[in-house]
């Protein structure tokens, strides 16, 4: 690894899933570790059920904000079909972290398109390293679907060029001030995500 190495993380999901927040937390953590960071936010119409991606890039100096196809180190897929959609954005040595909770869009409900039968199988067939588990179920068991975000961050926490604890603290800090009652549950969500990625 050369010293100018830039870490590229692509977070992909659907409007409303917390893709932007996950990317923001990753960016802030990288910033706190002394990296230069750039992050794209593509909002707008995407809020309403559309595809949302956020590109996070950090290193000594980051120029272009978008991760070129084939150069992402980590793909955080908040939904299996979305992970499949973006899988070729990973470099061959990259890792995909995938939430297996499916979300069908109306175009599938209306019978206009088919949902892929086995998105994870298709991802496996590309030969790329991946970890797939039901982050949605973990969040639901903890009683709050919004925790998917924290579960997924916990899941990638061992893949980053800084300690997992630093990322966790960044997340918990966001709650410590405003919603202290949510600190403990986010801590749990983070650890469950970390554990799940190790097991899958």
């Amino acid at each position: 690894m050369n010293e100018n190495k830039i870490t590229n993380i692509l977070v992909a999901g659907i409007g409303g899933q917390g893709v932007m927040t996950a990317a923001e937390v990753l960016s802030q953590t990288a910033l706190s570790q002394g990296f230069d960071v750039k992050k794209t936010e593509v909002a707008g119409m995407a809020q309403r059920g559309g595809v949302v991606t956020s590109h996070v890039r950090f290193g000594a100096q980051v120029l272009s904000p978008a991760i070129p196809p084939g150069e992402a180190d980590i793909l955080v897929g908040f939904e299996p079909a979305e992970a499949l959609r973006w899988i070729s954005h990973l470099r061959p040595t990259g890792v995909a972290m995938i939430n297996t909770t499916r979300q069908e869009p109306p175009v599938v409900s209306l019978g206009l398109y088919d949902y892929p039968e086995d998105p994870i199988g298709e991802i496996a067939a590309t030969g790329i390293e991946y970890h797939a588990f039901d982050a949605g179920a973990i969040a639901r068991e903890l009683g709050n679907f919004k925790l998917v975000n924290t579960v997924m961050l916990g899941a990638i926490s061992e893949l980053l060029p800084f300690p997992a604890e630093v990322l966790k603290n960044e997340i918990l800090d966001r709650f410590r001030g405003r919603k202290p009652e949510l600190v403990e549950i986010n801590d749990k969500a983070f650890e469950l995500g970390r554990k799940a990625s190790a097991e899958h």
Partner: peptide, 25 residues
């Protein structure tokens, strides 16, 4: 860089074809 609905995206690198996910009300 972003999906342009409502065209399904066939990935030129992998040939993977995923339904489009256009914004909805």
């Amino acid at each position: 860089i972003e999906i342009k609905p409502p065209v399904a995206r066939i990935d030129p690198a992998t040939g993977i074809d995923v339904f489009p996910r256009p914004p909805t009300m």
